[in-house]
């Protein structure tokens, strides 16, 4: 789908060993597949079904989403930062698209 823009909030820097909070949001309708359109037919399901977060190539957090997650899924979680590096976030759509974004973090 077009016009999907992931947004992520990661602190610019952290002290070594600090546990930081990461907030993510992506605009997506999360069509549940249970709703009927104007013509009375079911609107096919289209949701973000998986979200993953990696730090320097290692998994930090992931989650599987179901249609019971609200539109524009918001996910907040934490991560422990031992070294400077890059967080990589990806969202997997039902239609096979992958939306990705990256954020760098420095050590104080």
């Amino acid at each position: 789908m077009d016009n999907i823009k992931p947004r992520v909030k990661v602190p610019k820097s952290a002290s070594a060993g600090e546990i930081i909070t990461i907030k993510t949001l992506i605009n997506h309708p999360m069509e549940s597949g249970l709703r009927k359109g104007k013509d009375g037919n079911l609107i096919p399901r289209q949701i973000i079904n998986k979200f993953t977060c990696e730090f320097n190539g290692k998994p930090v957090f992931s989650c599987e989403l179901e249609p019971a997650i609200s539109a524009n899924p918001y996910i907040e979680f934490s991560a422990k930062v031992n070294e400077a590096g890059t967080f990589k976030f990806s969202w997997l759509d039902d239609d096979g698209s992958v939306y990705e974004t990256e954020n760098k973090i420095a050590i104080k």
């Binding site: 957090f61 989650c63 249609p67 019971a68 918001y74």
Partner: peptide
């Protein structure tokens, strides 16, 4: 969610690198 058409909502997977087993989201 016990009363939704489909009870599954989400599965969160943590690793030691998560630092804390905490997550927030918004559901229907």
């Amino acid at each position: 969610a016990e009363g939704n058409p489909n009870p599954d909502v989400a599965v969160f997977h943590f690793t030691p690198m998560s630092g804390a087993a905490e997550a927030k989201t918004r559901m229907r």
